[in-house]
Design a protein around this nucleic acid. Structure first.
Length: 456
RNA sequence: GAGGUUGUAGCUCAGUUGGUUAGAGCGCCAGAUUGUGGUUCUGGAGGUCGCGGGUUCGAGACCCGUCUCCCUCCCCA
């Protein structure tokens, strides 16, 4: 047939990339564990009833659906075919690939609530899938690293997420970043305030572009989106809101009549205060009224992390959701969490050249294969290296030394052991340092101690 | 879901207004050097020009469709 190709928006990760990705995963996992989060994994696919309706209309469209197995179309009637694609889809597809890690987590909590120690803190590092159109920093299969706490309303969780981010990102070398924070309650309050109850979604989408397209265009867009012009006039304070001098006080006087908004502001102030007590130095947190986030399940604080000086979307996002388990029949469990996008973090680190050098965990020593006798001898000593914890291999074919050394060179193997008749007779093997080209004759045991010493 | 753009050797790319057998650099393989890699020199292999159709005496080039890369919008990690 034709040449093979990758499915759109997917990638392979070769050995070199894997070394870098592993570095990211390990760093994140270590931080998660340091904050008391426990590991969890859930299936790649879920019943669509679990997934649908949790991410808003946009999200539902981006779900990868799995065709029912077997004769999925055999039972369909003419009426089904004519009913249109939406009802038809529900008949032929019952499962879908997970869209994020939060909803499957909520499902897990509901199903296991009797056995979990509440509040329950879990972390989860797995791929998710979205039928999005690929772009820079946007893939159809990508990894998320989530940490969530459920079963407590305490704003400590929000504060800890801030701490966690300030722990992980610098550990990866990303020091220039901004943690933007807002609160859905404030947005709700604003929408009420201007007489556009429940319209905070479209409102935020437009306001979010303020620094990009300017006030006039934003007003234009708001009109297009159906906001009354006297409503827009009432938004004036937002346009002039300054981040520098205590935005909360300004907001409070403006939104004083809105109970929800005041609650939201108060929550954020408390988070700020707690972060201060926790002793965060060099805090890179910033209040941003225009931060909205589309996922419809957030109800309290919302976060977004942006790496500065890099042309890429946010590398992390999250927030509090008061009633996610409510949709699964168990109300009253509040949760808050953060999700880090490994693939974007990778791109950021690549662009800023932040990966530490030698990430390779490759072979430490290779035994050459001169002829059959030497090969047999090599086979007898190879296990000694492995038992001593030294990554080692023997060249499988008895080809020219040139080729074998070339192989070692390409694989960046630092040492090669040359064995010929002389070496077999004397028991003194030739150890070649591939970097310096130096060679010395040593006993097997001495080579082992030498190589082990090298690691320190 | 809307719009724009790209696709030629393993990689990065040339290829004139349509004209014989499609090129370069790097990489790869072999030899120079039958027990020594990274340098150098010499030689060699490798392409259904994304895929399908059309126009033409003739298409890598023009037209239509389709897939893909990248980008903007939407949304997001």
């Amino acid at each position: 047939m034709s040449k093979p190709s990758l499915a759109r928006g997917t990638r392979d990760f070769g050995p070199e990339q894997m070394a870098k990705r592993t570095f990211i995963f390990d760093t994140i996992r270590r931080s998660f564990q340091r904050y008391g989060f426990l590991p969890l994994e859930t299936p790649a696919f879920e019943n669509l009833s679990v997934l649908m309706g949790k991410y808003g209309e946009e999200g539902d469209q981006l779900l990868f659906k799995i065709l029912n197995s077997g004769d999925f179309s055999g039972k369909l009637t003419d009426a089904d075919w004519q009913a249109g694609s939406k009802p038809l889809t529900t008949k032929i597809s019952e499962k879908g690939l997970r869209y994020d890690l939060t909803v499957p987590f909520a499902r897990y909590v509901v199903m296991n609530r009797g056995t979990l120690a509440m509040p329950f803190k879990r972390y989860q590092i797995q791929p998710v899938w979205r039928a999005d159109r690929p772009q820079k920093g946007r893939y159809r299969e990508f990894y998320q690293c989530d940490a969530d706490v459920v079963g407590t309303d305490s704003l400590l969780c929000e504060a800890e997420i801030v701490m966690l981010l300030h722990d992980i990102l610098p550990a990866l070398g990303i020091t220039d970043f901004t943690v933007k924070i807002n609160n859905r309650k404030i947005l709700t309050g604003i929408a009420d305030m201007i007489g556009a109850h429940g319209m905070e979604g479209p409102l935020c989408v437009a306001i979010d572009k303020l620094d990009k397209i300017g006030k006039e265009k934003v007003v234009e867009e708001l009109l297009e989106r159906g906001f009354a012009s006297d409503s827009i006039d009432k938004l004036e304070p937002i346009f002039s809101l300054s981040a520098d001098e205590d935005p909360f006080t300004e907001l409070k006087s403006w939104l004083g009549e809105s109970e929800v908004a005041l609650k939201g502001i108060q929550e954020l102030e408390e988070v700020w205060a707690m972060v201060k007590i926790l002793g965060l130095e060099n805090a890179k947190i910033e209040f941003d009224v225009t931060l909205a986030r589309g996922l419809s399940y957030y109800t309290g604080a919302i976060f977004e992390v942006k790496a500065n000086n890099v042309q890429i979307g946010s590398i992390s996002g999250g927030g509090r959701y008061d009633n996610l388990t409510g949709t699964f029949g168990v109300p009253g469990i509040s949760g808050v969490g953060i999700s880090l996008g490994v693939d974007r973090i990778y791109d950021v680190m690549e662009e800023l050249n932040l990966f530490p050098e030698s990430q390779k965990t490759s072979t430490k020593v290779m035994i050459s294969n001169f002829d059959e006798e030497a090969f047999t001898y090599g086979l007898s000593i190879l296990p000694k290296f492995r038992k001593a914890g030294i990554n080692s291999e023997i060249y499988p074919d008895s080809v020219k030394l040139k080729k074998q050394l070339d192989y070692a060179d390409r694989k960046s193997i630092p040492f090669v052991i040359l064995i010929g008749s002389d070496e077999i007779q004397s028991g003194l093997l030739t150890l070649k340092n591939m970097k310096t080209g130096e060679q010395q004759k040593l006993k097997t045991e001495d080579i082992i101690t030498l190589l082990n010493r090298e690691d320190q």
